[in-house]
């Protein structure tokens, strides 16, 4: 009743959620095994053991554009074309409708 059966496999979110919570509990348990006796406010809490300066958090924020810069760069050929198609010009919007209508008519005529 609770899960769904697609004919190929089954999906039961309650079982999944229980499993997920169990894994989270195990992870927290492992984390709790860590040492608590480190010295606060000394070099032990610094990020870099090598003694580098820690940058200000404002300088570390990855801005929206930068996050997938590499992916966009790798697919720049596709993106250049896809962008060029989204011209924002109303005449092109109409042209796309007419072209699609033409294709549908051809398919219906051929498929009849």
């Amino acid at each position: 009743m609770n899960g769904i059966n697609s004919g190929f496999g089954a999906w039961n979110p309650l079982v999944w959620t229980a499993l997920f919570l169990g894994i989270v509990a195990v992870a927290l348990a492992i984390r709790a095994l860590g040492r608590k006796d480190y010295k606060k406010k000394t070099g032990q809490t610094k990020v870099y053991l090598s003694g580098n300066e820690e940058p200000e958090p404002e300088d570390l924020h990855v801005r929206g554009d930068a996050l997938y810069w590499g992916m966009v760069e790798a697919l720049s050929g596709y993106y250049r074309r896809a962008r060029a198609l989204h011209t924002g010009i109303l005449s092109d919007y109409f042209a796309w409708i007419i072209v699609t209508l033409g294709i549908v008519f051809v398919l219906l005529a051929v498929g009849r």
Binding site: R83, H86, T87, G88, I89, L90, S91
Partner: peptide, 10 residues
């Protein structure tokens, strides 16, 4: 002009 009213693009 329809070609210039295109601030919404991309």
């Amino acid at each position: 002009d329809v070609r210039e009213v295109k601030e919404l693009k991309g």
